[in-house]
Structures are given as C-alpha cells and as structure tokens.
Amino acid sequence: MIAERGPLLPEMMIRLLAKNELAMTLPLVQELNPGVPPDVLAQRLQDMTAQGYRCAAAFTDDCCIGVAGISLGTRFWCGRYLDVDNVIVAPQYRGVGIGQQLMDWVENYAHKEGCEIMVLDAYVTNHPAHRFYQRNGYQIVGHHFVKSLRSTG
C-alpha cells in the first residue's frame, strides 16, 4: 500500500504589492478578523497604508493565496525593526509550506532593509500560530497590553 501524500506546494511567486493592489488582501484579512465589517477593514487599510504599511503576497496563477503585512520602524530598545502583521494563507492552501515561504521572504526583506529584529503579535488563543512562530525562531519576550478607548454606551 502506498501512503497518501498531502497536497503539493503549488507553483507560486511572492512579491511586494503596490499600494493600488493592497485591497486584494482584504478577503484574506477578513478571515483573520471575522468580527470586523469589510468597510471598516478597507478604511483601516487606507489608514495603515498612509502610515507605511506594506504587504508581501503569494500568488499561484493570478490568485492571491497568502499575505504577510509588514511595517518598518525604529525603537529605543531594539533599533530598526520589521513588524509582521496578519500572516494569512487561504484555507485550501494551508499546510503545504506557503506560510513558511512568506516568512522566509519577509525575513530576507528585513535583512535588505537593515533591520536588527523582527516582531509580531499573535492572539493568546492562537496556539498553532505560536508553534509556527517559535519554530521560526521567534521568542515570547513580553506581553502586549491593550486598553480599549471605545465608549461602551
């Protein structure tokens, strides 16, 4: 009996999106943020883009199958850094190495940009993401504190 293999990695390319292409990432971003209305995500994308947000995207044929948002910055404690935001692979393409290739591409980009470190946030309940990032050499070194400023009434 021949063991069944998982899905094969599709032929793909990864590239940085132009500003006018960023909206194509919104369906994938919606998957990670199902409680945020699409029009709110679109407005936030515009705001983020004005603040320097960029996005690497993986394509097979002409279909966007994975994204990794990136922002560059500098802080006292670490120097120049690249912040990775919303790494998402379309459900039908998960488990075949696309997320790994996106992270490798982003790390190479960070090196080219002279970054000293890469940082990212993952929801505390997203244990598969924790394992993935830890396999990629990320360490949990602190807590990301959040205080809501939204009115409740």
Rank of each mutant, 00 (worst) to 15 (best):
M1S: 14
M1C: 12
I2G: 14
I2A: 15
R5W: 03
G6Y: 04
P7R: 01
L9T: 12
L9I: 12
P10A: 04
P10Q: 01
P10T: 06
E11Q: 11
M12R: 15
M13F: 13
I14S: 06
I14R: 12
R15P: 05
R15E: 01
A18M: 10
A18W: 06
A18E: 06
A18P: 04
K19Y: 07
K19H: 13
N20W: 00
E21G: 01
E21L: 00
T25Q: 04
L26H: 10
L26D: 02
L26I: 02
P27N: 01
P27I: 09
L28M: 05
Q30R: 13
Q30C: 02
Q30D: 01
E31H: 10
N33F: 14
V36G: 07
P37H: 06
P37T: 05
P38R: 05
P38Y: 01
P38M: 10
D39Y: 12
D39W: 09
V40W: 02
V40E: 14
L41D: 03
A42Y: 07
Q43V: 09
R44S: 14
Q46F: 11
D47F: 13
D47H: 14
M48A: 14
T49K: 01
T49Y: 05
Q51A: 06
Y53A: 06
C55G: 02
A56V: 00
A57F: 02
A58N: 08
F59S: 03
T60Q: 04
D61V: 11
D61Q: 10
D62W: 04
D62P: 02
C63Q: 15
I65R: 02
I65E: 00
I65K: 03
A68D: 05
G69V: 07
G69L: 08
G69T: 05
G69K: 09
I70G: 05
I70S: 05
I70K: 09
S71N: 09
T74S: 08
R75V: 14
F76V: 14
F76P: 06
W77C: 12
W77Y: 13
C78G: 10
G79W: 00
Y81K: 07
Y81V: 03
L82E: 03
D83I: 05
V84F: 11
V84I: 04
D85C: 08
D85V: 08
V87K: 01
V87Q: 03
I88A: 03
V89N: 06
A90C: 00
P91S: 14
Q92E: 15
Y93K: 00
G95K: 04
V96Q: 08
V96A: 00
V96C: 06
I98M: 05
G99K: 04
Q100Y: 10
Q100E: 11
L102V: 02
W105M: 03
E107H: 11
E107Q: 09
A110S: 05
K112R: 14
E113P: 02
G114C: 03
I117V: 15
V119I: 11
V119Y: 12
D121W: 08
V124D: 12
T125L: 14
N126D: 01
P128G: 04
A129F: 00
A129K: 06
H130G: 09
H130S: 07
R131Q: 15
Y133H: 02
R135P: 00
Y138W: 08
Q139K: 15
Q139L: 14
I140D: 00
I140F: 09
I140S: 10
V141N: 07
G142P: 10
H144F: 03
F145N: 12
V146C: 08
S148T: 11
L149F: 04
L149S: 09
R150D: 15
R150E: 15
R150M: 13
S151P: 09
G153Y: 09
